[in-house]
Computed example of a mutant assay.
Amino acid sequence: MGRIPFPDDLIRAQQDWHAAYRALAVPPPRGATELRRRLLALSVRTHWHPFGSTPDGWSSAARVELRR
């Protein structure tokens, strides 16, 4: 499988998701409630992004590649 051309805003949302997740992993996290809300909002943004309905974006492989 070749490299998938993800939209920049989707890549940035996924990077922000990873950053929020890492911030929650630090014991005890500061602003945990805000971080959880941010993580949830970013999860919704990446899951329902319009790219997911395109031929390149609907596959499980595309979702795995985005997380990398």
Rank of each mutant, 00 (worst) to 15 (best):
G2I: 09
R3T: 14
I4C: 09
I4Q: 05
P5M: 05
P5H: 06
P7T: 04
P7W: 05
P7M: 09
I11L: 14
I11R: 15
Q14W: 06
Q15Y: 01
Q15P: 01
D16G: 03
W17P: 03
H18L: 14
H18I: 10
H18D: 14
A19C: 01
A19S: 06
A20D: 03
Y21L: 13
Y21I: 10
Y21S: 15
A23T: 04
A23Q: 14
L24E: 09
L24G: 09
A25Q: 14
A25N: 12
P27C: 03
P27G: 01
P27A: 09
R30N: 12
R30I: 11
G31V: 06
G31Y: 07
G31P: 11
A32Y: 02
T33F: 10
L35F: 10
L35D: 09
R36Q: 14
R37A: 13
L39R: 14
L40K: 08
L40A: 10
S43R: 07
S43A: 10
V44R: 11
V44K: 03
V44W: 06
V44I: 09
R45V: 00
H47A: 13
H47D: 08
W48T: 05
W48C: 08
H49A: 05
H49P: 03
P50L: 02
P50C: 00
P50A: 01
F51L: 03
F51E: 06
F51D: 04
G52C: 13
T54V: 04
T54N: 04
P55F: 10
D56G: 04
G57Q: 06
G57N: 05
G57W: 00
G57H: 02
S59Y: 02
S60L: 13
S60T: 11
A61P: 00
A62S: 14
A62R: 05
R63M: 04
R63G: 02
V64D: 02
V64L: 09
V64M: 08
E65N: 03
L66R: 01
R67A: 12
R67P: 00
R68T: 09
